[in-house]
Design a protein around this nucleic acid. Structure first.
Lengths: 243, 243
DNA sequence: CTCCGCCTGAATGTATACATTACCGCCCCC
DNA sequence: GGGGGCGGTAATGTATACATTCAGGCGGAG
């Protein structure tokens, strides 16, 4: 019937472009010209255009007036709004899950994730940060995919994959680690409270906790902006990791 | 440099497909085969695929596993969630606008829109419904595009253009008009209160009003489901109009 | 000197032929 | 009788040539 191989030309172009955009090789506002890109990747313009179209769907590119694609540019204000939006959507997902009920097995999975997250606080600082970020992402994924709302999960997915900057290029340095460490304890406490609220079917409380959780990320971002040297690249991704 | 004409093949395919999907000619789950569609439209597969890709971006189509596109199918639960989501996003937009401040000129425009909306209540019933729906849409557009959050406006736009069904195919009948009429007065009162709250920079109040506004739509949808004959087509669009 | 118009180049839009692959039914073997 | 492999077929993936259109420069005329 039809191919679904992921090692096709479109897939390769998709990965290459996404990597370059997230890696900062292609700054926001850059126009992507089909011919040179296709020649460089040794593919034809057809799968390249398909890949660009999918990246537009993801929100990494935007269509230029008159045709063609631009790398989407984000401002600090956009990042702040995205954090706000994420808090609102996660809050809604948590509230709906609480109101509509969640199977005990799913809640048990999330509690297990929280146990593992606790383990990060005993280990060495740098290593713990890496582990924490990964497990934290897993927890939020689980929260997003709680049963109760496909539609909201979809929007949340879009918001979480917004192409702010390269996560790896902006990992927090040691000083940032120290500054944010205390916030991690608070964040973890919020994680626990969130699961408890959903478990107790207290929707309003679950929503409030998720929002406060996002406010923590917002505060960390503000701190990062204040303490970074003026003109230094801000890490939007960092704010979304340390939440 | 590049063409920007909108009467190109892709544009025609886009309009044709969107019309058929929203018109219910292509029910949810229908697979769109490129070759027959392209032949019927007398265009080649290339612009047709581009059009389908854009429709996937809009949320009207989804990519099938193994390639190709399906018309996205929505359940009643999806519509309920979409109403919920819309209330949440409009609430957030209203809150942020209130917190961050809105130029008086913009508020004046919205107040003028409200004045016009009031006019619908004096006229004949059927005519007023049509006018009300249009003006109501304009009001919500204005709300969406209040300064303060591009990111949230974007998500809101996606939510509002979700392809539930043909609006025209499901316009409420006379009985529905009567049943919903009283809710319009309440809705209009909420519109006024919303603008006042934003004007007074009371963010929390603005958000609460927007949410309650969505709850009204939800209640109308529930009523519609209960009173319609079982098996009769439900109008998701109606619920989004009469809010 | 200025302005209008053509002309050329560069970029995307489109058509079409060909390649690839997933699905489905058939057949063989167990 | 059932399951697994195998091929045909239909649909999408890809390449390439050509069409279209816009922008900008260049030249000629007023």
């Amino acid at each position: 019937m039809a191919p679904r191989a992921k090692d096709n030309q479109e897939g390769r172009a998709l990965l290459t472009l996404r990597e370059r955009i997230l890696g900062g090789v292609l700054p926001g506002g850059t126009r992507l010209f089909e011919v040179p890109l296709a020649e460089e990747m040794r593919i034809s313009r057809t799968p390249l255009r398909a890949a660009m179209s999918r990246l537009a769907e993801e929100g990494l590119l935007e269509r230029a007036r008159g045709g063609g694609f631009l790398v989407r540019a984000f401002t600090v204000a956009d990042v702040i709004d995205a954090i706000e939006l994420r808090g609102v959507l996660e809050g809604t997902a948590a509230r709906l899950a609480a109101e509509r009920g969640v199977p005990e097995a799913r809640l048990a999975e999330m509690r297990a994730l929280l146990e593992t997250l606790e383990g990060c606080f005993g280990a060495g600082r740098a290593v713990a940060f890496e582990r924490y970020a990964g497990l934290n992402g897993a927890f939020h994924d689980a929260l997003q995919h709680l049963p109760g709302s496909e539609i909201i999960a979809r929007e949340l997915q879009r918001t979480k994959t917004l192409p702010f900057a390269s996560p790896s290029a902006f990992l927090p340095d040691e000083a940032a680690h120290a500054a944010f460490e205390h916030s991690l304890f608070y964040a973890q406490a919020q994680h626990r409270a969130l699961v408890e609220a959903i478990s107790a079917r207290e929707g309003a409380r679950a929503e409030a906790i998720a929002r406060e959780h996002a406010r923590l990320a917002r505060r960390n971002l503000d701190h990062l902006i204040r303490t970074k040297a003026p003109g230094a690249p801000i890490s939007p991704a960092l704010a979304l990791v340390i939440d």
